[in-house]
Nucleic acid binder design. Structure first.
Lengths: 153, 153
DNA sequence: CGTGAAACTTTCTACTC
DNA sequence: GAGTAGAAAGTTTCACG
């Protein structure tokens, strides 16, 4: 399993994947060679899946975030796969979950502005039958892209 | 601004930040040196903020995702800062937005299991006054960590 | 912007203790 | 695991076309 050093490494690499092995080694009180071995192991054992570049949404002209809560009347496997396909096709949809309870699905979407939501909305309802759609604009992001907690049993 | 090659590079780097410059150069039909210059520029101009390691949630013992929709009766700056502080303190809360409309805030949380939600819930209500809290369990993730669309005006 | 080459940094991999 | 050292890989930068 993971010891404290492994967890620290995962925490640091989630913040900056380009930290040199030398720096990481110092942070966890290990030699660079031992540290390098650990990181290799963390990858091999699947703790680290990949590294990704984080792109500035505003700089890209996509400052707006919205959440969409969906209800459907069709609860078939076909419908689900259709939603999956639609979501995969629309890059503005960055996250989709099937939920328990009062709502069936939640979508997170990123947009150049609030008005652009209508474009996505039309694509959605055109391609899939929806019972109820309510959209919420994120006015302010208080926390995002936070690293995962690393101290669980 | 950005041309097609820049956009392609951003797209590729969002999927795998460790792609070698040689591979990237080939993908956008450029020489490695020219490609390296572009990537440096994309960083300098703030398109690329950082690179992060993506950690496997399940492997880390955090397979459960939940969304929490909040209503509050206090709409002061103080309350907002308090929520920000609480969210910053609780690593299981990975995302928080202030919303328009029917709900005031949305939280995304990651947990070892559904039961653990109670622990977070208690921390929340203990530290901040909430008017209404409803939680939704993600039963299935249809899309997540999708790269940003790169083809906007 | 391309090419080619050089300089540099960093990582990986023994081998030893 | 630590430490060292050598090898290898990749990146950046430069001069020049």
């Amino acid at each position: 399993m993971l010891d404290d050093r492994d967890r620290k490494l995962l925490s640091l690499l989630q913040q900056d994947a380009e930290t040199s092995v030398a720096q990481l080694a110092e942070a966890v009180n290990l030699s660079p060679s031992a540290c390098s071995r650990r990181i290799t192991r963390l990858r091999e054992e699947g703790y680290i899946l990949r590294t990704t570049a984080e792109v500035d949404r505003r700089r890209m002209g996509l400052p707006t975030t919205m959440f969409v809560l969906l209800r459907t009347s069709e609860h078939t496997a076909d419908w689900l796969e259709r939603l999956r396909a639609v979501a995969a096709d629309i890059p503005e949809i960055v996250e989709v979950h099937r939920l328990t309870g009062n709502f069936d699905y939640i979508l997170k979407i990123v947009l150049p502005n609030v008005e652009y939501y209508d474009v996505i909305y039309k694509q959605l309802v055109h391609r899939i039958r929806l019972h109820d759609v309510s959209a919420y604009i994120s006015m302010e992001t208080l926390k995002s892209d936070a690293p995962l907690p690393t101290h669980h049993a």
